[in-house]
């Protein structure tokens, strides 16, 4: 008897899940953090600095910016891939769609700034193009993948913060990020405190930038998850 109930339950689960399983046909890298270096072109130091910088940016503005390097675009246009990735990861706050992705495909020599619906007014197509042309591309051409990504992220964040002279300049020397460590410490403290207070839904969104929708797998990667934002094809692409 018990076995029958169990079998029937399994059937129900199977029926219900077939619909959702079909949707995930594409092979996209999992969202393991704010910097997903699938192509392996970033040093771990740069990765950490970038992640801290992006986290600080989300703390102050609520905007989620992530960096993704992919080993392959699977024969797709980088613009198409960017939208798929952004939607699958749900980068940006839900309903506000304030997310952006710097997507780099070194094997296809293609780069794209994918901009969520909510940021299209600030990080316009023209601005994204200028960042790619003037900041990222010269570095990539010279073979400095890491410097291109780091200065590119700086330029994107400067534009998003609304700095008056954020118009992309040619590459500049980059100082060490002094603000990274305290921010991380504060976050760890908050993380530990909230953890001990118990996982109340009310606390988590404040800490992790309103991730109202937890997607599968996102919880493991250092606690970062997409907020459920969506993308509509804004931004610019470039090649080098």
């Amino acid at each position: 008897m018990r076995r029958l109930v169990f079998t029937l339950l399994l059937v129900v689960v199977a029926v219900v899940t077939t619909g959702t399983a079909q949707a995930a046909g594409l092979s996209l890298p999992p969202l393991t953090g704010r910097v997903v270096d699938q192509a392996g072109i970033l040093s771990s130091a740069a990765e950490q600095t970038l992640a801290a910088e992006l986290q600080a940016h989300e703390q102050s503005t609520g905007q989620q910016v992530v960096v993704a390097t992919v080993a392959s675009l699977d024969e797709r246009d980088i613009a198409e891939y960017g939208v798929e990735l952004g939607r699958a990861w749900g980068i940006g706050q839900k309903d506000k769609n304030t997310g952006a992705i710097l997507l780099v495909a070194p094997n296809e020599r293609a780069v794209r700034i994918e901009v969520g619906y909510g940021l299209e007014g600030t990080l316009t197509d023209a601005t994204s193009r200028l960042i790619i042309e003037n900041v990222i591309r010269p570095q990539f051409r010279a073979g400095n993948m890491e410097a291109g990504i780091v200065t590119g992220v700086d330029a994107i964040l400067a534009v998003l913060r609304g700095d008056p002279d954020a118009a992309p300049q040619p590459p500049r020397a980059r100082a060490k990020d002094p603000g990274g460590f305290p921010v991380i410490t504060v976050l760890i403290v908050i993380f530990v405190i909230t953890r001990f207070m118990g996982r109340r839904r009310g606390v988590w969104p404040l800490v992790l930038g309103a991730p109202t929708v937890w997607r599968g797998g996102s919880r493991r990667g250092g606690g970062f998850g997409g907020g459920g934002g969506s993308f509509g094809g804004g931004g610019a692409s470039g090649r080098w």
Partner: peptide, 18 residues
């Protein structure tokens, strides 16, 4: 022109997505 051209490209992209 660069600004207009990037907007046009972006719009073609958005059309494709839509």
């Amino acid at each position: 022109f660069i600004a207009l051209q990037s907007q046009l490209e972006g719009t073609e992209n958005r059309i494709a997505v839509a």
